[in-house]
Simulated scan of single mutants.
Amino acid sequence: MTDFAQTEIERRLSLYQVFLKLYEHHSSLLDEILQQENLSQPLFKKMKLCYVHGVVDTNTVYLMTNLCDNQTQSLRQPQRIWTIGRNRNSGICIADNYMSRRHAAIQYINDQGFYFIDFNSTNGSFVNGDRAFGLIKLKDGDRIRVGNMNFDFFMTSTHRMLPSVAMELLMHLVHRKSDTQAEILTCLRDRQKPLIEKQNDNLKILRNSGLVDKFEDWYDNFSSEQKSEILDRFFSRQKPYNPSEKIGN
């Protein structure tokens, strides 16, 4: 019985050592296994997915990440070097006792891309499960571990200009001020400007021709309803004006 207990203890110690080595060199694999096995458990549903996203937009380069202050932030750095560590002055400060004060950094090199470098930290850094030594060029989807923190690295590689949204869809994107009023989108208001400008040009031509002066003499003798109908016909141009047509009832 004693020999059996001793053998069982040795077996468990051996498995524990294997687990430690596996976690040290392939922590991302273990994290994925645990996520799949415990996906239905409430604890794992609340797990925060950490990431760093490298963005290159023309001449502007910055990082988007949720590692700082538990919220997504845009991090811009003039030298394009984002330090990672326990130090409060680090670009990405992570409160982790297993992380060195100046642990690592992500650097962008023109025309080459983003790189990861470990500053000879005590517990090291790992990229896709491999210990990080020297400059390591990062790829979209790389898994990085610093201290006890694991995060995914993403970066933009291409840009696309999307087509304009159809007019019938724009009509659904209306910001309502009240139950009876709505604020039409700016682009819809802009479409009405050429029509207004054209109307102003037409009025200028008519005034120069002298027809407006004659029309004003007739206009004074009309009722308010007749004046309203004349103006509506003039601006809408829905039907040509016929002098012989009677106005009003």
Rank of each mutant, 00 (worst) to 15 (best):
M149Q: 15
K46F: 07
A104T: 08
F126Q: 11
I247Q: 02
I94P: 02
S228I: 00
E245N: 05
T2F: 15
S90P: 01
I184T: 13
T65D: 04
I94T: 04
E216R: 01
L135N: 12
F119G: 05
D213M: 01
Y98T: 07
S244Q: 09
S223W: 01
S27W: 10
P163D: 11
Y241G: 07
F153G: 09
L15I: 14
D179V: 06
M161A: 15
E8Q: 13
D213I: 00
S74W: 01
Q6L: 12
G129M: 12
Y23T: 10
D213W: 00
G141L: 04
E8R: 14
R80K: 14
T122G: 05
L185G: 04
T60K: 15
F154S: 14
E245F: 02
V56H: 00
V18D: 15
M161E: 13
E225Y: 00
Q17E: 11
R131C: 09
D201F: 12
E24Y: 11
K227R: 02
V52R: 06
F151A: 07
K214D: 01
S224L: 01
L185C: 05
R88T: 02
L34G: 05
H159N: 14
S178W: 08
F4V: 10
K214S: 01
F19A: 14
A105Y: 08
L67Y: 03
G147D: 12
S14I: 12
C68K: 02
D31Y: 09
K239N: 15
K193C: 10
L195C: 12
T83M: 02
L211K: 01
P243T: 00
E216F: 03
I84G: 06
L188S: 08
W218V: 03
K45T: 12
M47K: 12
I247C: 03
Y108N: 09
E10Y: 07
T180Q: 07
N150W: 13
N200E: 15
D213P: 00
